Simulated assay, not measured.
Amino acid sequence: MTLSLFSFPSPPSLFANAMSIFNLLALITSGYMELIGKNKQYAKFCDNDDTGSNKPKAKEKLKLPSRIGMLVFYTPSFLVGLASFTFFPHQDCRFLMVISVLTIHFFKRILEVLFVHKFTGSMMLKDAITIGLSYGVSTATMIYAQYLSQECPEPAFDLKYIGVVMFFIGITGNFYHHYILSSLRKKGDREYKIPKGGLFNVVICPHYMFEIVEFVGVCCICQTGCTFCFTLGTMFLLMGRSYATRKWYVSKFGCKFGKDVKALIPYLF
């Protein structure tokens, strides 16, 4: 009963409801795999997979340059968001806000890949495709569920404007810490360094923390069960990834890495 005050009813769509549960379980599973060390092979984890190994490979693994792989991550979702402005008629204010913030999120990611991030390594082709498809399907499902909810009564508590504020706080904080990370490396530098500045002094993944704030904002704008499932799953995934990232920094830098620097939440986790 309490949830009905804050969210639209479940859409009359077996597909949308099934995909919501599937996305939640898939993201929780991915977060658990990160937690136990079975990491998706991109960024530092892919580089780590290749270093110091003289063992013959049973078969050559298909890889992409990291920049291309990251574009594979985000471009399908951006195109889904962009196409939604045309494909869905009779758009109300909330629906326009939803597709706008999702499109902005992935467009910002593409711009960062092209102009902000510095890449030195590669990533597994299968991981790039898997993650790109996952983002694309999740984005399409959230937009479709929102479209169906337009015919339902509005929730008693309208959170969409609070959501807009949280979204822009999250996307700004995420960009700021991505910029700090990109500034660590000079041209031609391939070595990882311990990030400093911003909230890196208290958590090793403040960019993930702000991404969670961003998607909580999206969840408040949408107020659908589908987006709630995606946001909750994303929290579990980023908790697992940030834990694995902190563990990687400790293994690489040892006592140079501050023991009080947490993974994701200042002073707690």
Rank of each mutant, 00 (worst) to 15 (best):
I221H: 07
T234I: 01
L125T: 15
I28V: 15
F257G: 04
N17S: 12
K247A: 01
H90R: 10
S66T: 03
F107C: 13
Y267E: 06
L71C: 04
Y161S: 00
K63H: 12
I143A: 10
I131Q: 01
F119L: 05
S242D: 01
E154M: 11
L25C: 09
S30L: 14
F210K: 09
Y179V: 15
H207F: 01
I265Q: 10
C222G: 06
A128C: 13
H90S: 12
I180S: 05
N23R: 05
G37H: 15
N201S: 13
R185K: 12
F230E: 03
L14N: 11
S138K: 03
G254I: 04
T141Y: 02
G31M: 07
D127K: 03
S182A: 15
S13I: 00
V216I: 14
N39C: 15
F210P: 14
Y176V: 13
D127E: 05
I36E: 09
Y208E: 01
Y135G: 04
K256P: 03
D127R: 11
F236H: 07
S100V: 03
M235K: 04
C219N: 14
P65L: 04
E60R: 13
I21N: 12
F119H: 07
K193T: 08
T141F: 00
L102I: 14
L82G: 09
V261E: 04
M142K: 04
V261D: 02
I129Q: 10
F253H: 06
F175R: 14
P11K: 07
C255S: 11
V116D: 01
P56L: 08
C255A: 14
C222T: 13
T86K: 09
G52C: 00
A128M: 00
T103N: 08
N54A: 12
P76H: 07
G37Y: 06
N174V: 11
L24R: 11
F85K: 00
C152Q: 15
K40E: 13
G170T: 12
S77Y: 02
K186A: 08
G233K: 00
L237E: 15
K55M: 13
V213H: 11
M235F: 15
G217Y: 01
S100W: 00
N17Y: 12
L5D: 11
A140F: 14
F45V: 00
I169S: 10
L35C: 11
C205N: 04
K126Y: 03
L35E: 12
F87H: 09
L3N: 10
S53C: 04
I169L: 12
M70G: 10
H178P: 06
L35Q: 13
K247T: 08
S149P: 03
R67G: 02
K252L: 08
H117G: 00
G217D: 03
